[in-house]
Design a protein around this nucleic acid. Structure first.
Lengths: 230, 230
DNA sequence: ACCTGAACACCGTTCAAGT
DNA sequence: ACCTGAACACCGTTCAAGT
């Protein structure tokens, strides 16, 4: 009795393997980076391992190397993906230059704040992805309308992006390090040293700091505009 | 012939183990941290592993756990040790407040520049060691003499330390990442994207950026000083 | 009190092998 | 072309054991 009716029943739609259920879930660089960001947002910086990203996609760690050369590529791509929201929302050419500077800096900072792991990586990897560049460039082009000399424009642009980075890093690191190994560390820190407020590590809102800096830029670069002096 | 004269010769000052040649080279938290800094300066951030630090001291990795709870403690201690030079060289009370702010910020930045690995860790660990605190506090006390209201003093102090952190991070990350895995990465980056200068990622000297910020602080906080208005 | 040694559960990355 | 699987040389950290 090698072929019973019950044996034949196995050959049905329900038992035949589906064509490619994995065709939409096939690997791609985009899928890998998206999964990486999701993982980072959920579990923090320490969760970005080749093995965990791969597991998230139902694949072996070594498979990722077809799409990416090394782990650092994953970091760079994830960071730039996160900046795409801010970079896709840049103020138009009609907005006054000082408002542009303020607004772009604020959006840049917000991206860091929304994804705490970014600041940690920014201490190690340069922010030179296309979206990071788009943000920096929008600030630079805005400053070109300020009326200041080029050197002062560069100084101002540098000051702004460095302040964004420093502010984001400080805020993130203080609000519990990385989200991953932070729960215990933050508690311990608070216990050992007092909560940030009691310690005097209270940090003013970024807007206030940014305003100080933009005021300075306006004062130095903006005074020589033809309209104002005419 | 079990005991020949030559056998007895083995029992001499030259063959007897020395009392404790290792008494000066015995472990201690200070020795561990000093070795860590040396290792970091030499081989970069990626060299700070429990096993390598231990090897540097001729000891097993697990021995370090007697003096330190975890690897992060090593990081925090190493960072603060590096800041001790700047913290031990603070301007006196007779120096004008704006000069103090400028000078301390510059020294703070110099510590980062001298030890490129610090910036990377500062993206992950809060700078709240005693020496980091001494530097911050000197800036705060200087600002108290500025004549501004307390809120503006806090904003100014925050702006300064964030600027130092952001500037140092940017400079270090761009000048070749970490020194450790940087050689190849820097070359590859330069090849792929052009050298920083050609890309437009030229960075003005920190002094110029700092001056912009200190000018802003002077403008906002310094105008109401009794001496100036009297 | 201080250090060793074995062990555990991880890492990134390579390379040959399968399909 | 794309993914698997085994392997290599690492990690941090624990815990019992030595002295």
């Amino acid at each position: 009795m090698p072929e019973t009716p019950s044996d034949q029943q196995w050959d049905s739609v329900f038992h035949r393997p589906q064509r490619q259920r994995r065709s939409e879930s096939t690997l791609s660089r985009d899928r890998i980076v998206t999964a990486s960001v999701a993982l980072l947002d959920r579990d923090g910086a320490s969760a970005l391992t080749m093995r965990k990203v791969a597991a998230e996609l139902g694949v072996h760690a070594t498979s990722l190397y077809w799409y990416v050369q090394r782990r650092e590529d994953l970091i760079d791509l994830a960071v730039d993906l996160v900046l795409s929201e801010a970079a896709g929302n840049l103020p138009g050419a009609d907005v006054p230059w000082d408002v542009v500077v303020f607004r772009v800096a604020k959006q840049y900072y917000a991206s860091f704040a929304d994804h705490p792991w970014v600041a940690g990586f920014a201490g190690t990897r340069p922010l030179i992805g296309p979206n990071a560049m788009a943000l920096s460039n929008r600030i630079v082009t805005a400053l070109r309308e300020s009326g200041g000399v080029e050197k002062d424009q560069m100084i101002a642009a540098t000051a702004i992006s460095q302040q964004v980075l420093g502010a984001a890093t400080t805020a993130v690191v203080l609000r519990g390090l990385e989200l991953g190994n932070s729960a215990e560390a933050a508690d311990e820190l608070a216990a050992a040293v007092g909560t940030p407020e009691t310690l005097g590590i209270w940090i003013p809102p970024f807007d206030d700091v940014l305003e100080l800096l933009v005021d300075a830029i306006r004062a130095r670069l903006g005074t020589a505009t033809p309209e104002k002096n005419a």
